[in-house]
Each structure stands twice: as C-alpha cells, then as structure tokens.
C-alpha cells in the first residue's frame, strides 16, 4: 500500500527538483519481528520514484553482515543517506547520517532536508560553527530520540545531521522512540527531542546552533 498520497508526492517532487548530485538511500530491514520494515522499503521506493537523483539499496539485517557492519547498523528499519562526491557518481560518501524507524510525521521534513543537504553539498551552518566543528578530533555519536508528532524534534535532528555532514568523525542518528521502546527506556526518554552524545551527555529540547555545538565540544 502506498505511503505518500498524491498531494505529498507533488510537493516532494518540487522540493527534490533542486537536487544536483546523486543520493543513495540504503535501507536495512528484516523479514521477521519488524512491523514497519515493509513500510521502510515502500517509503524508499516511493522517494526514488520522485527524483532521478535518488537510488536505493536494500539489505537484510541478518544476512548482509558486511553492510550492517560498514554502516554500523544495530536496529531495523534503518536508513543511511549517502551522497555522490562528484557529478559522475564515481565515488560515494557516508556522512554518518541515519534514520532509525520510519521518518514519517514531522520527521519527514528532517529526512527530506538530509537528502537535500547531501545532494547540494551545503550544511548551511554558520562559518563560526563550521570552524569549531573542524577542531573535533575524536568520534562523536549523536542520538536524537523523537516522536513523529513532535513539532520541535526536526530542529534537533536537522542540526545534528548538519554537524555530521561537516565532520567525518561525527555521526547522527534519529531514533523513533515509539518504535524502539526498549532503547527509549534504556536512555530514560520521557520527553522529546532527547539528545544523547557519546553516551555521557544527555539533554532534552531543541537547542539553538551555538548551544548544541557547545554540548558537542564538551563531549
């Protein structure tokens, strides 16, 4: 059954018409014990049908070990968004941007903007922030717990994705709390967005660029 209705498809098509370089949605699913895995595949296929710049690769979490290790996938469904680094698509880059769970609801905005950012090659962060991110020399993992009905959450997800785009040591993962309830319980998610940086820094709320950056720099 299709996920996107005709009106949404039309809007998405317009938004994606500005894409320049090719983008690949890498979808990790499994057949059993995953109620939303089929939706993940349908969403990826519908997105690819709306832009010639988007292609998809599908992998099974239990079977394709090399790929799950390569993209550090530990749950399904999960999407990694990678981008071609030149116009001929001879090389692809993983920016460390992942969405775990279906990026529907308000998170569809985050998902579309991540695709745009990877294709257009512009994080739209301030120069001051970009310079500060260059000084980071150790791995930083940002988990952003969301619900799909939270209008605040995309601000946090999109900012984390922008940070990941600017520095290869930074990775960002949107996690849909209602889908991964055990993980939400483990990290005491009682309000969203909840951000966990490198396991040791945790906070709730969508901080502005400079304050979110300060949290990352202190990790």
């Amino acid at each position: 059954m299709p996920l996107l209705d005709d009106k949404v498809k039309e809007s998405v098509k317009t938004l994606l018409s500005v894409l320049t370089r090719n983008v690949k949605l890498i979808v990790f699913t499994q057949e059993k014990e995953c109620s939303t895995c089929m939706d993940a595949i349908v969403l990826a296929e519908e997105m690819a049908a709306l832009s010639g710049k988007i292609s998809i690769e599908k992998y099974d979490f239990g079977i394709d070990k090399n790929k799950t290790d390569q993209f550090k996938i530990d749950k399904v469904p999960s999407f990694a968004i990678i981008g071609a680094t030149d116009s001929s698509s001879s090389q692809w880059k993983d920016y460390g941007i992942k969405f775990s769970g279906i990026p529907a609801g308000y998170e569809f905005t985050s998902f579309l903007n991540a695709i745009k950012m990877v294709s257009l090659g512009n994080s739209e962060l301030s120069q001051k922030t970009k310079d500060a991110l260059k000084t980071i020399n150790k791995p930083i993992n940002i988990k952003i717990f969301v619900t799909l009905t939270c209008p605040y959450c995309p601000t946090a997800v999109m900012l984390a994705n922008r940070f990941a785009f600017e520095n290869d040591l930074i990775s960002a993962e949107m996690i849909e709390s209602a889908e991964f309830t055990d993980l939400a319980k483990k990290y005491n998610v009682y309000g969203v967005p909840k951000i966990v940086i490198n396991e040791n820094i945790q906070f709730e709320g969508a901080l502005p660029e400079d304050l979110f950056l300060a949290k990352i720099l202190s990790a």
């Binding site: 619900t147 799909l148 009905t149 939270c150 209008p151 605040y152 959450c153 709390s177 209602a178 939400a184 998610v189 009682y190 309000g191 969203v192």
Partner: peptide, 11 residues
C-alpha cells in the same frame, strides 16, 4: 514532567 502532550504522549 512535560508541557507537550502531542509530542510526548507516545512515550
């Protein structure tokens, strides 16, 4: 403690 039921109800 929350002020946003539409955000946090699913939790």
């Amino acid at each position: 403690v929350t002020y946003c039921s539409v955000c946090d109800a699913p939790l």
